[in-house]
């Protein structure tokens, strides 16, 4: 009576084991890497918008301050999405016939909002307040990236909980002097107060910043 298996079975069994180990290792690496990819986080994705609004043109080109449009960023939880009226402040006179701006004119004529799509969106179980971040010296760029360089808006940071915690655990390096918060080109200079001094000036820091209820309420 011959043997049940042929000699090749040993090789097959070894390959099977190696394959299984590879599958496990590969699965673990995938599990670790996949949620961190820009693809999953929608980083650097261009979002199709009703009007291809360029922050690069308006911010870097024209030098318009963030707060011209996002009016409530200093006073409310949300930064404030400009109403069509704000767009028409200039575009009632400039580029009045541009086809690109037709939805804006329609919106004003019909009194219906422009359906902008969110680019920087947090999950609904996260409580985020722009006002406190501005008041405590966090620059726009820390979360939104270099908006002045974006011809079309895109998400610049992962905005994972790890991203938030990274700053909440040690906010000092991300703080700016009050006058630099909206400064798109700001760089730390020798005259800038040290991170520790800024943290003290803003009364920022301490364990409570990582309490669950700070962000999940």
């Amino acid at each position: 009576m011959a043997a049940i298996f042929s000699p090749a079975a040993n090789l097959a069994a070894k390959l099977g084991l190696i394959g299984a180990a590879g599958l496990v290792l590969g699965g673990m690496s995938w599990w670790w890497l996949w949620p961190r990819t820009d693809y999953v986080r929608h980083n650097s994705w261009f979002v199709e918008q009703p009007v291809p609004f360029s922050h690069q043109h308006h911010v870097a080109g024209l030098g318009i301050d963030c707060r011209f449009c996002h009016t409530t960023v200093e006073t409310a939880g949300d930064a404030g999405m400009p109403p069509t009226y704000t767009c028409m402040t200039c575009h009632s006179q400039v580029w009045t016939n541009a086809a690109m701006l037709a939805p804006v004119r329609e919106s004003l004529a019909n009194n219906t909002p422009i359906p902008w799509r969110r680019v920087t969106d947090l999950p609904d179980y996260v409580y985020f307040n722009h006002k406190i971040h501005i008041a405590k010296g966090v620059g726009c760029e820390s979360c939104h990236g270099t908006m002045q360089d974006m011809p079309l808006s895109q998400k610049a940071r992962s905005l994972t909980m790890g991203f938030c915690l990274n700053c909440h655990r040690d906010p000092a390096p991300n703080l700016r002097p009050p006058e630099a918060i909206y400064d798109t080109d700001w760089q730390r200079t020798p005259d800038t107060p040290s991170p520790a001094a800024l943290a003290q000036q803003y009364h920022v820091g301490g364990r409570t910043l990582t309490d669950c209820s700070i962000c999940h309420r």
Binding site: A76, G77, D78, M81, P83, P113, P123, D124, Y125
Partner: peptide, 18 residues
Amino acid sequence: DDMTVQPKAGAWSPEATL
């Protein structure tokens, strides 16, 4: 269904802005 999108009105949901 991971609760990142919940049936509640955000600051700029149409119900709020209208």
